[in-house]
C-alpha cells in the first residue's frame, strides 16, 4: 500500500533501532563488524602463529628435556627450543612448512558482518598474512592431477560456529603437511570399546614413526560422525598443551594412551627416546548407537595457533 499511512496497531520489529511508533526502541542494534577488520586480524594471526611458538608448547618441550633419557633426544629438544628463540627474534617461520591456514571462527549471534563477504575477508587475510610475512605458500589446486601452487596459500580451511554473544573469535592454526598426512579416521565397532581406541591411536603413532616430527601432540576425537570425529580431534589440538580434559574418565584415557605412546621408543624426531608425544588431548561427543567413530589428528612439535577476539 504505497504512500498509505501505517495503521497505528502495527507493532514495530524489536530488533529495529530507530523511531518506532512508540518512540525509541530499547533493544540495542546488532553489533557491526567490518569485514576489513577481520582481514587485518587474520593477516596478523597467520604471521604471529608462524613466528611465535606458544608458551604452553615451550613449557612442555622444557619439561620433556628433563625426562628424556636419550642423549640424541635431549639434543633435538634443545635445538627445537633454540629454533623457537631464533624464529621469534628474527620473525622467521618456526618451520618452512607454514601450513594450510586452518581458521576457526566463533561468531556471536548478535553480530553483523558488514562491508563484505565474511569468507572472502578471511581468505584475503590469509593472502596478505602469507605474502607480507614471507611465509611459504603450500597450497596446490587440482590435487590429484596438475597440483598447481595457488601462490598465496589460499584457500584456507574455515570452520564456523555460531555462539551466543556479540563477539567474533578468530583462531588461526597453520597446520603442517607432514603431521597431517599421518592422521587417521576409523569407524570402530561399539564392541571395540576403550581398548580398541587405545590400540588404534598407539598403532597410528607407531606406524608414523619419525615422519610427523615428534614429539607430537595427539588430537583424539571420539564420537559424533565420521567428519564430526575428525573436527573434534582437530579442535582438541587447540587446547592448552598437556592440560587434561576436565572429564576424569576422558582424562584417564588421555593419560593411559600417552604412557603407551611414550613406551614405543620412537623419541624426538624418531631418533629413539622416551618422549614421542608431549600430550594426548581427547574430545568426546555422543554418537549413533551403531557407531564408535575415532579420529586421530597428529600435530608436530611446531604446534602453532594464535587467536584474537573482535
Amino acid at each position: 500500500m504505497e504512500g498509505a499511512k501505517a495503521p497505528s496497531y502495527v507493532i514495530p520489529p524489536l530488533s529495529f533501532k530507530g523511531r518506532g511508533l512508540w518512540g525509541e526502541v530499547d533493544k540495542p542494534p546488532m553489533r557491526e563488524i567490518e569485514a576489513s577488520a577481520i582481514t587485518q586480524v587474520v593477516a596478523q594471526l597467520c604471521q604471529q602463529a608462524n613466528f611465535e611458538l606458544g608458551e604452553d608448547v615451550i613449557a612442555a618441550l622444557k619439561q620433556a628435556q628433563q625426562t628424556e633419557e636419550s642423549p640424541e633426544g635431549r639434543e633435538v629438544l634443545s635445538q627445537l627450543l633454540e629454533n623457537a628463540r631464533i624464529a621469534k627474534q628474527e620473525r622467521l617461520p618456526l618451520c618452512q612448512d607454514c601450513g594450510t591456514a586452518v581458521v576457526f571462527l566463533e561468531i556471536g549471534q548478535e553480530t553483523h558482518i558488514i562491508g563484505g563477504n565474511l569468507y572472502a575477508a578471511v581468505e584475503e587475510g590469509v593472502r596478505q598474512g602469507y605474502t607480507q610475512g614471507y611465509l611459504r605458500k603450500s597450497i596446490v589446486s587440482q590435487p590429484f592431477s596438475a597440483r598447481i601452487n595457488t601462490r598465496d596459500n589460499t584457500p584456507p580451511v574455515i570452520h564456523t560456529e555460531i555462539v551466543p554473544g556479540d563477539q567474533v573469535k578468530i583462531i588461526v592454526m597453520p597446520k603442517g603437511g607432514g603431521a597431517e598426512n599421518m592422521s587417521k579416521l576409523a569407524m570402530l565397532k561399539p564392541g571395540d570399546g576403550r581398548q580398541g581406541i587405545i590400540d588404534l591411536v598407539v598403532r597410528t603413532v607407531d606406524e608414523a614413526g619419525g615422519n610427523p616430527c615428534p614429539p607430537l601432540i595427539v588430537g583424539l576425537g571420539i564420537g559424533a560422525t565420521a567428519e564430526g570425529a575428525m573436527l573434534l580431534a582437530k579442535k582438541a589440538l587447540l587446547r592448552e598443551v598437556a592440560k587434561p580434559n576436565p572429564d576424569p574418565e576422558i582424562a584417564e584415557l588421555e593419560k593411559e594412551i600417552l604412557s603407551r605412546i611414550n613406551a614405543l621408543g620412537i623419541g624426538p624426531l624418531g631418533f629413539g627416546g622416551r618422549i614421542t608425544a608431549l600430550a594426548v588431548q581427547a574430545e568426546v561427543m555422543p554418537t549413533h548407537l551403531a557407531s564408535l567413530p575415532v579420529a586421530v589428528n597428529l600435530q608436530c612439535h611446531s604446534a602453532r595457533h594464535k587467536e584474537a577476539i573482535l
Binding site: 633435538v76 633454540e82 629454533n83 617461520p93 618456526l94 619419525g210 624426531l269 611446531s302
Partner: peptide, 12 residues
C-alpha cells in the same frame, strides 16, 4: 637426517 621443524636454525 636433519632436525625436522628447526627451519629457522638450519637456515643459518
Amino acid at each position: 637426517v636433519a632436525i625436522g621443524g628447526a627451519g629457522a636454525l638450519l637456515a643459518k
